[in-house]
Each structure stands twice: as C-alpha cells, then as structure tokens.
C-alpha cells in the first residue's frame, strides 16, 4: 500500500487539488478559431479553383461571419489571461518553440485577412453598400484585383490556424491526455467539418449543399479514424497515457465523449447527410447543428479531461 500526502500543506489556487488553470475560454476560442479556419480554407480553396460562382455561399457569404467569430474568440483569449494589460508582450517577440506564439502571430495575419475578405465581398450581402470615400473605393478595387494572392495566404494560414488549435494542447508533455500529435490533425479536421457545416447553413443552392455534405462526410470519416488511432496510440503507450485514455474508456468522461462527440457530433450527422444525398428531406440545420455541437464538445471535453491527468511519481 502506498499513501502520498503533502505534509506541509499546499493549496495553490487553480493548481491544487488538481490543475484547472484553463476554463471555458480556451476551448471556446479553439472551437471558434477552428471553425473560422475551416470557413476560410474552403473560401480560399474554391476561389483558387475558379469556382466562386458555383460555390457562392462558401466563397462569398459564409466568410462574412469569420471576423465576428475571430473577434469573439480573441476576446475569450483575453479573458483567459491573468495579466491582461501585458497581452501586447505577445507581439514584441517571436518564439518558434512556443505554439502559443505561433498562434498569436497567425491570428495577427488571419484576422485582418478575414476582414479584408469580408470587405471585398460586402456587396454580396448589402448590394447598395457604398464606401463613401474614394480612397476606400480605390483600396477595395486594388484588393479585389489581388484576390488570388490573398486567397493563397488565407488558405495556408487557415491550415496553420486549424492545426495550431490542436498543437497548443499536444505540445504539453506534462498532460498525458493531450500529449499526442494526433490532436493537431484531429482538431484541424474538426474545424474543417464545422466550417463545412456553417457553409451548408448559409447555402441556398441544393447543389452546393450536397457538395458540402459530401465533404463533411469525408472529413468526419477521417475524424473517426483519427480518434480510433488516438486511443490505440494511448493504449500502446506508457502507464500515464493508458490512465489518461481510461478517462474516456470507462472513466468519468466516457459517456459525454462517446455520446456527445462521437455519436451526436459525428455518426448521426453522417447518417443524416447520407440520407439527404439519397433524396430524403432533412432540414439542413439538424446535421449542421449537430456537427457544430460535436466540434464544440470535443474541445471542451479534451480541455477539461486533459487537466485531470498528470505524470505519476
């Protein structure tokens, strides 16, 4: 029998009795950032393929919500900081080894790009939009000409943003549940899936919706594959990672994870989307809403459960 106690007493706020330094702000931001990355990626991809008119909602309508998503996400990040007034310190240095530094700089690139993309497509939403000042009109004309270049930068940086949301967690060796490189691609896939769901919600054309339903099915299959691989990797690893995986395989987080994330967030929407493709009438809001819910729950559950497990010594 072994008993371990801290005889001197230790009750550091947010650290003891178990770590809970990150609350709702981080997973909410990761969800919004991932979804924004997904929308921007599809917008950039279909613009570069020259299919802007075919995929009208994806390239010209849905991206308008990205600046809003990013601003809410950034605000959540600011709320998470304990030394808020010093946030600008992120931008006085570039630290290649720190995922958070990468994230801060990528956001510095993606956020203005999303505003620019929204600005050059504003007339799609408000046909009578008037920039009022000539200089603004000139800037818009110039940026519209550079659309392809902007799409390239946006597409690449959105992938970095999507992967980073997972790497932020996976870079922590001290938290065994997070310490798997699968989280990068898994969160990217989840973000792309959420992006596709938002585009389906905005799309009025049946053909476009069907295309994104197909894309979404493909991405969710990849996600399921990644989740299985993640648990296989954990179970074949050290005792600390086996203990971490058991949180979701019989432990306290089993029901929320498999019901909310896997069944409701992935399997049910895939079934509904397949039925939709087979000409059944299914309101798009149901599969799209479930995908978004699953994507949000995935972040919340991984963030909360990850802080419950640590090295044993």
């Amino acid at each position: 029998m072994r008993e371990e106690i801290i005889v001197s007493g230790r009750n550091n706020y947010l650290i003891d009795p178990h770590l809970h330094i990150w609350h709702w702000q981080i997973p909410l931001y990761l969800f919004l950032g991932g979804m924004a990355a997904g929308i921007l990626f599809f917008a950039a991809y279909f613009t570069l393929r020259g299919k802007e008119d075919k995929y009208h909602a994806a390239t010209k309508i849905a991206p308008h919500i990205v600046p809003i998503l990013l601003v809410i996400g950034l605000f959540a990040l600011l709320l998470d900081l304990k030394h808020k007034l010093y946030f600008w310190r992120l931008y006085t240095t570039i630290r290649l080894e720190s995922p958070m530094s990468w994230g801060a700089w990528v956001l510095m690139l993606v956020t203005p790009l999303s505003f620019i993309w929204s600005a050059i497509h504003i007339k799609e939403i408000f046909p009578k939009w008037d920039w009022k000042f000539d200089i603004l009109k000139d800037i818009e004309a110039f940026l519209t000409k550079q659309k392809k270049a902007i799409a390239w930068v946006m597409g690449i940086s959105s992938i970095i943003l999507g992967v980073y949301t997972g790497i932020l967690f996976s870079a922590f060796n001290a938290r065994p549940l997070w310490n798997t490189s699968i989280l990068g691609p898994l969160f990217l896939a989840s973000g792309l899936s959420a992006g596709a769901a938002v585009i389906m919600l905005f799309s009025k054309k049946h053909k476009e919706r069907n295309m994104f339903a197909k894309i979404d099915i493909g991405i969710i299959v990849v996600e399921l594959f990644l989740i299985i691989h993640m648990f296989m990797g954990f179970l074949a690893s050290t005792q600390v990672q086996i203990n971490a995986a058991e949180l979701f395989l019989g432990g306290p987080w089993t029901a929320p994870f498999w019901i909310f994330v896997v069944i409701l967030g992935m399997i049910v929407p895939v079934i509904l989307e397949v039925l939709e493709l087979k000409k059944f009438k299914i309101p798009v809001v149901i599969p799209a809403g479930l995908v978004l819910f699953g994507s949000l729950m995935l972040r919340f559950l991984i963030a909360s459960a990850g802080q419950e497990r640590r090295w044993l010594y």
Binding site: Y13, I15, K82, Y86, W311
Partner: peptide, 23 residues
Amino acid sequence: CIGCGACIQSCPYDARYSHPDGH
C-alpha cells in the same frame, strides 16, 4: 508575463502557480 497559463500546463511537477497579481 501575460498570465496565459501555458507554463503551468507544461510543468510535470506542478511547481508554478498564478500569483494573485496576475503573473
């Protein structure tokens, strides 16, 4: 220090804490 908590997450010994002043 911006108080982001990344270092607290990264420490396998839980040796760091968030000071009431924020850092």
